[in-house]
Simulated assay, not measured.
Amino acid sequence: MGRPKEITQRLIRRAWRKLEFSGKFKRFFKEEVTLNRHKMECLKDSYKSSIWKLEIKVDQKSMPIILKISKQLRKPRPESTVEKNIYRKAKPILHSFMPQIYMTKKNVNGRDLWVFMEYIEPIKSRVQFTPAHFENIIPALAKLHASTMNERLLKHEKIFGDWLPRYDSKEMEEERIRLNQKTIYYLEKAMKDSRLKVKVEPYYNLLKGLLKKGPGYFPEVSKAGFSIVHGDLHTANMACHNLKEKAWQIKFIDWEGAKFAPCWFDMVNLIGVFLAYRREWEEEEEEITRRCVHMYANEMKKHGVVFKTDPMKLYHMAYLKRLLERSMYLQLSWAVTGKKEAKLLPVYLEKIKVLGKKYGLYN
């Protein structure tokens, strides 16, 4: 098999003609569509995917669509396989929570997967996002979680069983053990770096002691319920047609991090990570969090899911669990290697100290 060609406008036009994509939109538009050859914009291109904004004409009207190309990697990454299967197999369950998928086509340009989907502009850059906007997102997130909670998803085992990662699987448990050991390794490395030692040393004994006890913190979080979690909730991965509506019709995009895991992990990503970056709301963080957590619990209750443990306790436990099982590994490894800026390291260290004591991880 030859090396796949670079994704260009010319390649897309040739594939469109050769594979007769125009006629394959009929089930949605009742007629063939026409591709505007001159309006093709590459929104993002990386080693693993290429995202294009195309324009089609249907019934004399022009409309944008998205073409997402998942490239065939020499060493396929698990998260790449997950997103491909979300688009190809999970539509019967997740269609309400993602853009309309018009068509998927395997083995284009080698073994790439081409996905044509509805164009919905992400929230990012369209609104000056503040914590008040969480209220526009939480109802959709709760609906996703409730609709796939525990046995509600397990009855669809045939759809998800062989490809959706499960937090309680042996494979993911082994991954957490591996990350735990790597976190300890990078913690020791940080202590030998004069730049980092000043930040890490006040928390060193505490953090090392907690890491040696893990992973496997707070079983209450898992007992509260598993659902499909998106795994990477931020404004670039949430889209909505009309932000002027009181109730945003949220669609989630970029599902690489999806898995069957404790539902509270998404709330930690949505609320906790955002507020960790945006320290201008530090003094209001507790009230913002409480308001959002109670809203989430109430929305879940509307869909028949009632948490037996106090929701704020579950949120904080989930926050600590994610910090100790994954986030500290990322922050410490970035700080030591310089791969990325470890901007959240000081915030997360203090969170572990404060919440860890509050919830009995140490005396």
Results as ranks from 00 to 15, higher is better:
A297S: 12
S227C: 13
L243N: 13
Q249I: 07
Y217A: 13
S222E: 15
A258G: 08
D232A: 11
K212I: 12
C263G: 07
V198Q: 10
E299A: 04
P219E: 12
E188D: 15
K244M: 11
G216D: 01
P219Y: 03
L243Q: 14
L187F: 13
E220R: 00
D254I: 12
E256T: 13
S222Q: 13
I253W: 03
L196S: 06
G257H: 11
G214L: 00
L207N: 03
M238F: 11
E286K: 08
K189D: 09
G272L: 02
M295N: 01
E283A: 11
F265P: 03
P262L: 06
A258N: 05
A236E: 15
Y277W: 15
P202V: 13
I228C: 06
D232I: 04
S222L: 14
R278V: 07
V268P: 02
F260G: 10
L270P: 00
K251M: 09
Y296E: 00
Q249M: 08
I271W: 11
A261P: 04
T289G: 03
S227L: 07
E188K: 06
A258R: 09
M295H: 01
D254R: 09
E220A: 08
A297N: 12
E299Y: 04
L206M: 15
L233W: 13
S194T: 13
A236N: 09
V273I: 15
E286M: 10
F274D: 01
E287K: 15
P262D: 03
V268H: 11
E287I: 08
E282L: 15
E285C: 12
W264I: 11
E283T: 05
W255L: 10
G257D: 14
K223G: 10
C292L: 10
L270H: 00
N242K: 14
N298Q: 09
Y277S: 09
V273P: 10
E201M: 13
F252A: 03
E256A: 11
R195M: 12
F274M: 03
W255V: 05
I228K: 04
G209Q: 08
N242P: 00
E287A: 15
F218E: 01
H230C: 08
G231R: 04
P219D: 10
